[in-house]
Amino acid sequence: MSGGQKKRRVGIVGYGHLGQYLVKQLRDNGVQHGLELAFVWNRDARKLEGTVPLELRLAKLTNVLDWHADIIVEVAHPCIAQEHGESFLKAADFMVGSPTALADVGTEQKLREAARRAGHTLYIPSGALWGGQDIQRLDRGGMLQALTVTMAKHPDSFRLGGHLGELAKGARQKRVVLYKGPVRQLCPLAPNNVNTMAAACMAAPSLGFDGVQGCLIADPVLSNHHVVETEVTGLGGFSVHTRRKNPAASGAVTGEATFAAFWSSLLVCQGHGGQVFLC
């Protein structure tokens, strides 16, 4: 980076495993990429003590405009984008680490319009989605006909309640299909577990959350990795099937390779002006 180039200031919203990883990357390697940490927010501020300096702790998300971030990265919970996404986009570019929030029609429309009005970009990180840009190009060319994303994890890697939670508990001895159908219905049932599917829906707006199909599987054999498969069908007999094996600690919601993927996505966020951009 040249000496006169302005660093892009990054605000991190959420300080779980992924938030901690991104903060460390920004503090250790941000300068060489033209990035610096603007602030960190966490619902439980006590978690920041001893690791985040007081001057970098954002107390209230409603005060985000005062911190002059160039990009705000949410890695907390879908409700953050739903409740604060518009105000974030007024202040800065916004990377939605929990794109399951966009399965709510009103939230997606509201954030798309906020980005357009403010001239800021709504970034969607690819996460564990392999070939997202290829899906996006196929969709833009009017060639995409169908898309299915299958995610399989150990039962302990899910954070589920209700009926799906009970099904997952029953998957201790054998593989169980928890859900199969449109992604829109699945997102509110498994908001922390299917962000990869939501990213696929944003990559393929002609199909969207109603047209992209999701299959969620609990498999007791997968003790140290997650599996994500995509099946893409296009015009003229075109098809692609990918299978991604993502190493993951026992019981981890997020696979290890996804951490590095998020950092790579952040490096892409250099301002694309008033649009939705898969990174």
Results as ranks from 00 to 15, higher is better:
92 A>L: 03
103 A>P: 10
95 M>Q: 00
94 F>E: 02
96 V>T: 11
92 A>R: 02
98 S>P: 09
90 K>R: 15
110 K>Q: 14
117 R>K: 14
116 R>Q: 15
100 T>W: 03
107 T>R: 07
90 K>W: 11
106 G>V: 10
94 F>N: 01
102 L>D: 08
103 A>L: 09
90 K>C: 10
117 R>P: 07
90 K>N: 08
100 T>G: 06
109 Q>D: 14
117 R>N: 12
111 L>I: 03
102 L>G: 04
110 K>C: 04
89 L>N: 01
90 K>L: 12
95 M>S: 02
116 R>I: 05
113 E>Y: 07
110 K>N: 12
100 T>V: 04
94 F>Y: 15
112 R>M: 10
107 T>G: 07
89 L>W: 00
117 R>T: 11
96 V>L: 06
91 A>K: 00
97 G>F: 06
100 T>Y: 10
109 Q>T: 12
88 F>M: 06
90 K>G: 11
88 F>C: 01
91 A>I: 05
106 G>Q: 15
91 A>H: 07
111 L>R: 04
93 D>S: 02
104 D>M: 07
91 A>Y: 06
107 T>A: 12
91 A>N: 01
113 E>T: 11
90 K>Q: 15
107 T>N: 04
88 F>A: 01
115 A>Y: 01
96 V>G: 07
92 A>Y: 04
89 L>P: 01
94 F>R: 01
110 K>M: 13
96 V>C: 14
110 K>L: 13
106 G>S: 14
91 A>F: 12
102 L>S: 03
92 A>V: 00
117 R>I: 14
95 M>D: 05
89 L>T: 01
115 A>F: 09
97 G>A: 09
106 G>Y: 13
109 Q>R: 14
101 A>F: 03
110 K>Y: 10
111 L>G: 08
92 A>W: 03
90 K>V: 10
103 A>I: 05
91 A>W: 04
93 D>P: 08
91 A>G: 09
100 T>A: 07
99 P>E: 07
111 L>S: 04
103 A>D: 08
97 G>S: 11
97 G>T: 08
98 S>E: 13
101 A>S: 14
100 T>E: 05
114 A>K: 06
114 A>N: 09
109 Q>H: 13
110 K>G: 05
93 D>I: 00
98 S>V: 10
116 R>F: 11
94 F>L: 00
94 F>P: 03
97 G>M: 05
109 Q>N: 15
103 A>V: 03
99 P>R: 00
98 S>T: 15
95 M>L: 12
107 T>E: 12
98 S>A: 13
105 V>P: 13
111 L>E: 03
105 V>K: 13
111 L>D: 01
99 P>I: 01
95 M>H: 00
114 A>L: 07
